[in-house]
């Protein structure tokens, strides 16, 4: 158990209604946890608490058993272990070249220049930025490349938990796929725990081990994708949906094909349809 979120609630000053209400869960080692929920359900607020940027009104967060909002705990230590990649992270780039921008994080952690550069090099490699781009200005890059550099900037700090707020938003299908498989690789090779806020049910079904569904600041479901997506009606009532392929299976069923509608990935659907023909 890397992180335990213990009954946190949070209300923004300008609002009356709490944005987060009594939320508890834990983040396990080496897992991909996705958070889904309608706009305004509290996803972004929740992940900012996990990074110590917002302090919950009640409840607390434990990181490796230590209360991170304790007076003796330095939030900077937490932030270097829990990396947070905001939505559209490209706006955080500021250095004159890509490489020094990625060095910013590790340098803040107190590493020597040499160490920081090694980390930056590895991180840029990891996200697939070609070496000839290392010394150009980040503002000359394309949108997708900027995104990679920004993510590398967080990865270079070698976090144990990596939280990403819709990292694939605005990327082309190819870039999207590359990014998501990179996250799987990070989990497998670096033992990272990945927390992914996503609007794509297809991605959730394909990559997540657990799904958290937020509704009005409360956890509506926290389970495997298979179990969560079996609540089709409830999800749709929340303004969410099920993966495309599940919709397809429902159509097949409606057209008279007796398939199991509870399929959420293309592989599962393929099995189910083949089974239908195997019988027929």
């Amino acid at each position: 158990m890397r992180m335990i979120v213990d009954h946190i609630s949070y209300t923004y000053k300008e609002n009356k209604k709490p944005t987060i209400q009594d939320v508890s869960f834990e983040i396990k080692e080496k897992e991909i946890l996705t958070i889904i929920g309608q706009t305004g359900s509290g996803k972004s607020t929740l992940i900012q608490q996990m990074n110590g940027l917002l302090r919950p009104d009640t409840g607390t967060i434990y990181y490796h058993g230590k209360d991170v909002f304790d007076k003796d705990y330095h939030l900077r230590d937490l932030r270097s272990k829990v990396g947070l990649v905001f939505q559209y992270p490209e706006y955080q780039l500021f250095e004159s070249d890509v490489f020094s921008d990625v060095c910013f994080g590790p340098k803040n952690q107190g590493m020597s220049k040499k160490q920081a550069e090694l980390k930056a090099f590895a991180a840029l490699r990891m996200v697939g930025v070609p070496e000839e781009l290392f010394y150009v200005s980040p503002f000359e890059l394309s949108g997708g490349q900027k995104r990679r550099v920004a993510i590398a900037g967080v990865l270079a700090m070698e976090p144990e938990i990596l939280i990403l707020d819709e990292p694939a938003a605005g990327l082309d299908p190819q870039g999207r796929k590359e990014l998501l498989s990179m996250l799987v690789k990070l989990k497998e090779e670096k033992n990272m725990s990945i927390v992914l806020v996503s609007h794509s049910m297809d991605d959730v079904a394909e990559y997540a081990e657990r799904v958290m569904v937020l509704r009005d600041g409360k956890i509506a479901y926290l389970d495997t994708p298979k179990n969560v997506f079996s609540h089709k009606e409830e999800l749709e009532a929340m303004g969410l949906s099920v993966p495309q392929i599940t919709h397809l299976m429902y159509s097949v069923r409606a057209a008279g094909g007796m398939v199991d509608v509870n399929c959420h990935t293309i592989a599962e659907a393929k099995e189910a349809i083949l089974k239908l023909y195997g019988r027929g």
Binding site: Q48, N51, L53, R76, R79, S80, G83, L84, F86, P89, Y91, Q92, F94, F104, G105, N108, Q109, G153, V154, M157
Partner: peptide, 26 residues
């Protein structure tokens, strides 16, 4: 932006005035 840089370990509060001004650049 401030939050994003804070998560990258930026420090806006400690150090002398030059240090702080430099800290605002990000």
């Amino acid at each position: 932006i401030m939050k994003a840089q804070l998560s990258r370990g930026a420090d806006f509060e400690t150090g002398n005035i030059f240090h702080r001004v430099k800290g605002m650049l990000p």
